[in-house]
Amino acid sequence: MESNLLTVSPSPHIHQEQTISRLMWDVIFAMLPAFAFSVYVFGLGALMVTLIAVLSAVFFEYMIAKHLLKREPDIMDGSAVVTGMLLAFNVPTNLPWWLVVIGSFVAIGIGKMSFGGLGNNPFNPALVGRVFLLISFPVQMTTWPVPFESRMSITDVVTGATPLGFIKDGLKNGESLISLMQEVPGHIDFFLGTQPGSMGEISGLLLIIGFLYMVIRKVITWHIPVIVIGTMFIFSGLLWFGNPDRFVDPLFQILTGGALLGAIFMATDYVTSPMTIRGIVIYSVGIGVITILIRVFGAYPEGISFAILIMNAFVPLLNKYLKPSRFGEKVKNG
């Protein structure tokens, strides 16, 4: 009898198989196509940056959890790997390794662990790291390697501006949009991924495949990415419709830069996105609008990182005031 005591616990007695670590590994898996493609496009640099980012993120998570927070480090949940991957996806592949390590440190140390670790951080850690690097090291962070050139070298590469940056600079210098548009690659190139930019930004198609994978695996719901992209499309579409000479077309806005990466992988971060449908709508629309505002009127060519961080700050507020619609709340019978 001793060896065979009955177990007693409150109901429910069964549990679905999805765990945190499985969710995180699913996210990583969803990023793999884009990762593989960027290794193909950018070569060794992409591999190195990702490797360094992931390893250092895991290392910092482990060290901080063990020695500063004095608790059992749980790196196997994969969240540090996801943060590292996302950070790598957000920086140029020719970024010096020490900058990547600094980015990881800021992402994990300041962005995540200083708030108490997984589940407590108000801001997306990878974006905290990315924005920190962007503001502190703007030159390194905005020189993008040109695809297919110098694939075998890591730091000494041919660089170019991103399409967004190119257009922005051009407009600032008073060139006309039409002439500028002729110099950037077409939409199909953006979609397939042969634009200069960070690893995660290049191929819209592969990011969308990752998105579909995550939706099918029930890692995320479709709401945030679709609403963010939809808002960007409508808002930039209105601007474009109003003045096509000054504003680029909405498809261009969506396919260039980090729009898809941000909407699919960054804005959907569990911890930093709202919990109710009503909150999600406001959050996603906010990201879309702020992104376009920054791109069109702001100082930076790309704004989705800032947009997500700004909306992250509103998430606790949204969670507090936008409750789910309760059953039996509206008395409407018939």
Binding site: L5, L6, T7, V8, S9, P10
Partner: peptide, 22 residues
């Protein structure tokens, strides 16, 4: 002696709401 194994939330009140105890 234990007559069963409790496997619920580590909270005395939760356990005693469920049953007499392990």
């Amino acid at each position: 002696k234990k007559t069963n194994v409790y496997d619920g939330a580590p909270n005395c009140t939760v356990a005693s709401m469920l049953y007499g105890g392990d």
